[in-house]
Nucleic acid binder design. Structure first.
Lengths: 111, 111
DNA sequence: ATCTTATGTTACTACTTGGTAAAGTAACCA
DNA sequence: TGGTTACTTTACCAAGTAGTAACATAAGAT
């Protein structure tokens, strides 16, 4: 596996369960059981997915008694957006305008 | 592994070598040897990466005598962009404006 | 025909991933 | 103290990934 920032974020997103978890987290903090609930999957499996997301910096975790709530982190998404902008000329002219619009946040593509 | 469209595209992008290959393809069609050249890696390894990219729909391959040139395909990038827009409210307000601007192309997030 | 170049396939290895069941820990509750 | 809830760790398995070396094929050049 590649361990750079961007690769971690992309491969974390490359699983429907993890994308669903992130979508659930959009409405705020969630505990592990709340996140596990919609899935037909054991606890440990969810724990593993959460670790992948945490390692990729897509979520952060806190502590509330015996609960370990998760919440979204934004930064990796920006990095992915920056990556897409690299390939942009090849797939969507309309995003060129956008590029100009948002020129102030020129996140560099690392890798 | 997850075999849905979007997961395939994201995990294909989750490797620096494959991102480099895509970047090289931005300047036009390339043969396998041309693509392999910058990397300290055997031919078969590159062939495998190309298969991953092809399976994800990120490139397409043609035939020119004994060469099998590769070129970029756009579609999966749009899908990824659509995914990002789902999480967008959480990471960049400035992209909200964009959302409105580009509302006509409302690609659905599948998975 | 044969050599060379370009590319692909097969077989193998080491490692990672995504899942399970079962046991372990940690905090609150009675 | 003992039970319950919430979550993690460990040990395991099957499948997938990323690489290699060696061999196979295909087309063009001599």
């Amino acid at each position: 596996m590649s361990t750079d920032h961007l690769s971690l974020a992309l491969s974390a997103l490359a699983h429907p369960v993890r994308r669903d978890i992130l979508a659930n987290l959009m409405s705020g903090e969630r505990t592990v059981t709340e996140l596990a609930d919609p899935f037909d999957m054991t606890g440990p499996a969810i724990t593993k997915h959460l670790k992948v997301l945490e390692r990729a910096g897509l979520i952060e975790r806190s502590r509330d008694a015996q609960r370990r709530p998760c919440k979204l982190r934004a930064d990796p998404f920006r990095e992915i957006q920056a990556l897409l902008r690299v390939y942009q000329p090849f797939w969507d002219e309309s995003f060129e305008k956008l590029d100009i619009l948002l020129a102030e946040e020129d996140n560099r593509v690392e890798e």
